[in-house]
Design a binder for these strands. Structure first.
Length: 269
DNA sequence: ATCCGAACCTGACGGC
DNA sequence: TGCCGTCAGGTTCGGA
């Protein structure tokens, strides 16, 4: 669920319900997430939500004296509900608002996080993050400069947050397919045109997915339990053995750093 | 400094 | 039916 496009569409869908509204209090039912839920979050009362931002896959909820930092981990979801909705097994955190709405966090695997930070520049989880993939600062020159000494395979390197944030396991494979680059290629072996294609592909794939995420989010907010996150056309991810949509060659799969990778052996070099 | 595997958790699924 | 191994869209940490 929580690819960057989903986090972005979550932000856009949730913001209208909570920005400018009054947060009455938080309900923490299961504090053991990736780290313990920050103590400050328990103490919140009668706070106005000033803004909701996104950095990488983190959602940043701004209050007067600090920020709630939310990460969805592998299995987290956020929904807007009416406050009477009874919690279920994996509903770990609620933010209750004076307008009758509740922001509910559900996360079966509990790899997510709810942290408090008064100064975002001091945040341990945000401090070392590389550029946003859709920003100007992620460009061909940056990729080539950062990759110059990288001998390891390009695919796991794309998922390193110091290079660029927000490229998860699905979009690493998809971006490499679109760029025609084999996932095993050493990162420092890409030519200038290849680096240019790769940067453009990452931006295009994420952008297209964000645009398709809007439809997903409406289901999300209606809390009908039907995610449907993958309505977008995936070219290679999860398609091992199936014909390449471009050339018909069976899609290959393998592993990099314990994560599955998919590619077309004919289209990607 | 850099790399890789382990770790954090629960649930779904396929094979025996 | 049940037990076991494997896999899952993320990120940090420790040890080599």
């Amino acid at each position: 669920m929580p690819e960057l496009p989903e986090v972005e569409t979550s932000k856009r869908g949730i913001a209208p319900h909570i920005v400018g509204e009054t947060l009455l209090h938080a309900v923490v039912r299961h504090p053991k997430l990736r780290w313990p839920v920050s103590e400050e979050i328990y103490q919140l009362s009668d706070e106005t939500v000033l803004s909701l931002e996104r950095r990488a896959k983190y959602l940043l909820l701004e209050l007067k004296h600090g920020w709630i930092i939310i990460h969805l981990g592998m299995s987290g979801r956020l929904r807007i509900l009416s406050e009477e909705t009874p919690p279920e097994k994996h509903d770990h955190v609620d933010l209750v608002f004076s307008n009758g709405k509740t922001l509910r966090y559900t996360d079966p695997r509990r790899f997510g996080a709810w942290l408090w930070e008064t100064d975002l520049t001091q945040s341990r989880v945000l401090r070392h993050l590389g550029p946003e993939p859709l920003s100007e600062s992620f460009n061909t020159e940056w990729l080539m400069q950062k990759s110059a000494a990288k001998k390891s395979a390009i695919k796991p390197w794309l998922m390193d947050n110091k290079l660029v944030v927000g490229v998860g396991n699905i979009y690493a494979s998809e971006s490499l397919f679109q760029a025609g680059i084999h996932p095993d290629r050493p990162a420092n072996g890409l030519s200038h045109p290849e680096s240019e294609r790769l940067v453009a592909s990452i931006k295009a794939v994420l952008q297209r997915s964000i645009e398709q995420g809007g439809t997903t989010l409406r289901d999300f907010l209606q809390s009908d339990g039907k995610p449907g996150y993958f309505t977008q056309q995936l070219n290679v991810y999860g398609r091992a053995g199936e014909p390449c949509l471009h050339c018909g060659t069976p899609i290959m799969s393998g592993r990099h750093a314990q994560r599955s990778t998919y590619w077309c052996p004919r289209c990607q070099h």
